[in-house]
Write a protein that binds this DNA or RNA. Structure first.
Length: 222
DNA sequence: ACATTAATTGTGT
DNA sequence: ACACAATTAATGT
């Protein structure tokens, strides 16, 4: 049975995407194996990928789009941790699935997302077989740890207004626009604070001329 | 075009 | 943090 041409083209496209976004994964063999064992998933904006308590059986390699990762506790309390952009993976899942642990995180597609879902069984071999895979996972851990330190820093030492400013800048860079589409209560959830606090700080910032407010919309001034 | 309703935002305590 | 007022967007008639 021969593979239809359009499928091969699709595969080539994905291979190039993989090479372009994950330049730490160098072995051509490994790249092919990732595409062979992994499954390409297209996830629409707004869809929840993981929530608290889910078992994890695959790890995501993000090819396109942005995934929002937040901590979620039993009571449904949330705190935005970081964003996964193209070329990254969730390193906590690298550990989690190894020890067969339930997810302690929640992830939602911030934009439309394309990713390769790699089953854990495949990864096990790669660590010993391909130096660059080992390197890639180590770099991911390192990146993750740094981000966690940053979060700790922000929550422990920064005031809410500083965190809000940072939040807005990040949002703006993700959407590549100074127009941010989000409600005050969503921001409050992300930063784990109250909606009123966010409303008041935003109002103050508007008075200072830093931004312009609208319903479900914030326009950043440059 | 207008009225109704739901959701978001503003504010005082 | 809570209660409520005001405003805005969405929807139906």
């Amino acid at each position: 049975m021969s593979t239809p041409t359009y499928l091969k083209e699709e595969e080539n496209k994905n291979l190039r995407l993989l090479q372009r976004n994950f330049d730490d994964i160098t072995e051509y063999e490994l790249q092919l194996e990732i595409l062979e064992k992994g499954k390409i998933l297209h996830i629409p904006k707004g869809k929840t990928i993981m929530t608290y308590g889910h078992f994890i059986r695959t790890i995501p390699l993000v090819l396109n789009g942005v995934i929002k990762v937040s901590r979620e506790n039993k009571d449904g309390q949330e705190l935005l941790l970081h964003y996964l952009k193209a070329g990254s993976t969730c390193s906590i899942t690298l550990i989690c699935c190894r020890i067969d642990k339930k997810s302690i995180l929640k992830s939602v597609a911030e934009t439309d997302v394309t990713l390769i879902a790699v089953p854990i069984e495949a990864m096990e071999l790669w660590t010993s077989k391909y130096p660059s895979w080992k390197n890639f996972t180590m770099l991911s851990y390192d990146k993750y740890m740094s981000q966690m330190i940053d979060i700790l820093d922000a929550v422990a030492f920064q005031k809410v207004d500083a965190r809000l400013t940072h939040y807005l800048n990040e949002k703006s860079s993700i959407s590549n626009s100074t127009q941010i589409k989000v409600s005050h209560s969503q921001i409050a959830t992300d930063l784990n604070t109250s909606r009123e606090t966010i409303s008041r700080i935003l109002k103050q910032m508007e008075k200072e001329g830093k931004l312009k407010l609208g319903r479900n919309r914030i326009e950043l001034n440059v």
